[in-house]
Amino acid sequence: MTEDPRLTVDDVPVATYVLDPDLDVRHGPRPYLHPVRTLAGTPVTDVLPADHVWHLGASLAVQDVDGTNLWGGRTYVRDTGYTWRDDHGRIVHTDWIDRTPDRLAHRLRWCDRGGGVLLTEERRLAATRVDGDPAAWRLDLDYTLTAPADRDVHLGSPATNGRPGGAGYGGFFWRAAPTGDAVTFTADAEGEETVNGSDAPWLAFGGTGPGGGAYTLVFTGLGEGDRWFVRTAMYPGVCVAFAFDSPATVPAGTHRTGRHRVTVVDGLIDRDRAAALAGRDR
C-alpha cells in the first residue's frame, strides 16, 4: 500500500493527503487532508467525527451532483427531509501530474454510484510559508471541474433542495479540530449567525484545539456566486459553498474553476492581523 503523501513547509510536515480512503460509500469516499497542523504542531482538522462521520478533514465535495450524493450521510429530499438513499458516489484519484514535498497535483473523477463519470477534475495543492510571519503558513487549493461534452452538470445543496436555515453547504469544506471556544469573523461581522451566508472577501475561524493549542484559519477565495457556510455551535467548520441558496451549473463541455487559500496560524489573532494576512492573497 502506497503511503499517503505529505505536504511540508521548510521540512516541517503540515498536512497529510489521504488519497484513497477505505470508507463505507455512505461516507462519501474522496481524497482529503488530515491531519493538517500549524507550524507548532497543533491539529486544525478533524476526521470521522461522531456527529457527522462523513466530515473528512479538508476536502472538496458536493451533496447533490445531478442527483448523486458525493458529500456523504443522508440526502436532503424536498418535502421529506434527510433520508438515507442509495445515491452515494465517490471521488477517485486517477493519476499524478506533480508530486513534491510542497506541491501536489493530480487528476480525479467524480463518479456516481455505478461508476459513471459525472465530472473530471484537475487539482493542485501547495503549502508555503508566509514571509515575515514565523507562526503562519498557507495552503493553496486550485481546481478545474469539467463537465462531459454532451450534458450540463447541476450542483445543489440541502438549501436548494428545500432545507431552511442557511444549510447551503457543499464545496470546499474544512471540518475544524474540536474546540469549545470557536470564534468566527469577517472584516465587518462576527459570529455564526451573521457570517453564515455572507460573501465577505475573507473569513477567520479560530479556537483552541486538542491539547490546548490555539489556532486561527484565514480563508479567502470565494468564486462568483459562492458564499461562506459556517458552523461554530453544532460543530466547528467552514465551507466555500457552491450552491448556498441557488443551484449552480457546469455547462456541457465547460469548466468550473476555483482557487481557495487557507492561512494556518498559531494562536488566536485579531481582525487587523487577519485582514493583513488575507490581504497578502491579492
Rank of each mutant, 00 (worst) to 15 (best):
G267V: 09
N69L: 01
N161R: 15
L119N: 12
V36G: 08
G170T: 02
A252S: 12
V240D: 07
L155K: 10
T16L: 06
D64N: 03
L119M: 09
R37A: 12
W84D: 13
A276W: 07
L203F: 00
D66M: 07
A105P: 03
G165D: 02
P5F: 07
G237D: 09
G72F: 03
I269N: 02
A243E: 07
D199V: 00
L141G: 04
L141F: 06
L125M: 09
A149M: 05
V36K: 10
S157V: 06
A61L: 04
W110H: 12
F229A: 02
R261E: 13
G171V: 02
T208V: 08
V183G: 14
C239D: 15
H34G: 03
R273P: 02
F244V: 01
I97H: 13
C239Q: 04
V230F: 01
G191I: 00
A182T: 14
T68G: 05
I269E: 03
T128S: 15
G279M: 11
S198P: 03
G114F: 09
R109K: 13
Y215N: 07
G89W: 01
A187C: 08
L203M: 13
H255P: 02
G267Y: 06
L33Y: 05
E3L: 10
D226I: 02
P148R: 11
A276V: 05
T146R: 14
G225H: 04
D98F: 09
V36W: 03
L155F: 15
A105W: 07
G213E: 01
L155S: 13
L155N: 12
R138W: 03
G197D: 01
D20V: 09
V25I: 15
A274W: 05
R138Q: 13
L33S: 07
T128F: 13
E3H: 12
T120I: 07
H93W: 10
T75E: 13
P21T: 12
V77T: 11
A252F: 10
G267E: 09
D272K: 04
D140V: 10
D10F: 02
L222A: 00
T38R: 12
T186I: 00
M1I: 13
L60T: 13
A189L: 14
A127P: 01
H34K: 06
F173T: 12
W137D: 10
R163E: 12
T254M: 11
D64M: 01
L19D: 11
F173M: 07
P178L: 02
R259I: 05
T45H: 06
G267I: 10
T45A: 03
R30L: 10
